[in-house]
């Protein structure tokens, strides 16, 4: 009971502190803007910890953050292997293949009006479909190892990148294209100097959406069959063994990998599209 009371106290305390900071005079500084979400996160973790321990929630329902941290620290090598198998081999290789294929396809589509008219509605349609469903088929074709996971990722990331890139390549105005023409620029000159830079914000939008899709694809594909290593495999077998601390540790890995992946793509975007209004300060 004491712990539950403590949890309530921490919740109110954290909220009060945040309210003070957010409505205070320093609210616009970078430090406070970083501090407030961190305080919120820490408060949430502490409340979770004390509630689970105080109410004695069994481990098979919800492990406390401390249990998850112990499981995380105790299985580092296992988690690292899973990370390599699912993220590096499955997700990243599929992501690279899928995104470059979509990019090349978008350039081809941009050159031919007929192809664009025909493929764009189809691409838009497919981008909204539950493509994860192809996982069992691709696992059957490419075997249980990471190749099939990469294949699922390729199919999943292809359409968002394609649709966004095609939209981006049409972003330039007639005035800008005419200017290139008065310079007697060839197709590729105007492509590299005008249309590609103008398309980059759109391309990166597709690339950023695809980072999450890539991880989802790689993990879900492992539910349909995998070697005895991998994040999806570990999650489904640990759930079967009711060792939920391990599941949560794996989810922490997935969360870290997902936000790192997204963050690194966003960083590349920032350095390449520094001129775009959304990146200016």
């Amino acid at each position: 009971m004491l712990m539950v009371g403590l949890a309530a106290l921490i919740w109110c305390g954290g909220w009060w502190l945040n309210a003070r900071l957010a409505n205070g005079p320093q609210a616009e500084t970078r430090l406070v803007q970083l501090l407030v979400p961190v305080i919120f996160g820490v408060t949430l973790l502490l409340v979770w910890q004390f509630l689970v321990k105080g109410l004695q929630v069994p481990l098979v329902i919800l492990p406390a953050p401390s249990d998850i941290a112990v499981a995380f620290a105790g299985n580092l090598s296992k988690l690292w292997e899973d990370f390599l198998q699912t993220f590096v081999k499955g997700a990243v290789s599929g992501y690279v293949i899928g995104c470059s294929a979509a990019f090349l396809m978008a350039i081809v589509m941009d050159r031919s009006d007929f192809l664009r008219r025909g493929l764009l509605p189809v691409g838009n349609f497919v981008a909204a479909l539950p493509i994860v469903g192809t996982a069992p088929i691709l696992v059957m074709w490419f075997g249980f190892d990471w190749h099939s996971k990469a294949a699922v990722v390729v199919v999943m990331v292809f359409f968002p990148v394609l649709v966004n890139t095609v939209a981006g390549l049409r972003e330039t105005s007639a005035m800008q294209r005419d200017l290139m023409q008065t310079y007697a620029a060839s197709y590729w000159q105007s492509f590299f100097k005008l249309r590609l830079p103008a398309a980059l914000p759109f391309v990166f939008n597709g690339l950023k959406i695809s980072t999450t899709l890539a991880l989802v694809g790689a993990i879900v594909a492992e539910f349909f069959g995998s070697p005895t290593v991998g994040m999806g495999f570990r999650i489904s077998t640990s759930v079967g063994k009711l060792s939920l601390d391990m599941v949560w540790a794996e989810i922490v890995v997935a969360a870290l990998a997902g936000s790192m992946f997204y963050g690194s793509v966003a960083m590349v975007e920032k350095s390449l599209t520094f001129w775009h209004p959304s990146q200016r300060r």
Binding site: W15, N18, A19, L21, A22, N23, A27, V32, Q33, V36, P37, I39, F40, G41, V60, I61, L62, T211, T212, L215, V216, I219, V220, F223, M231, G232, I235, S236, V239, L242, L244, V247, W248, E250, I251, A254, A255, G258, S259, F261, Y262, G263
Partner: peptide, 30 residues
């Protein structure tokens, strides 16, 4: 609410980069 905006919004954005679907088997079993 300014407080909610500053404390919750960053987490809502970060959570979109996380493969939430990994939670699915656990939610079902629990």
């Amino acid at each position: 609410s300014r407080v909610m905006d500053m404390s919750v919004m960053p987490w809502a954005i970060v959570s979109q980069t996380i493969p939430i679907i990994a939670l699915a088997p656990m939610i079902i079993v629990v």
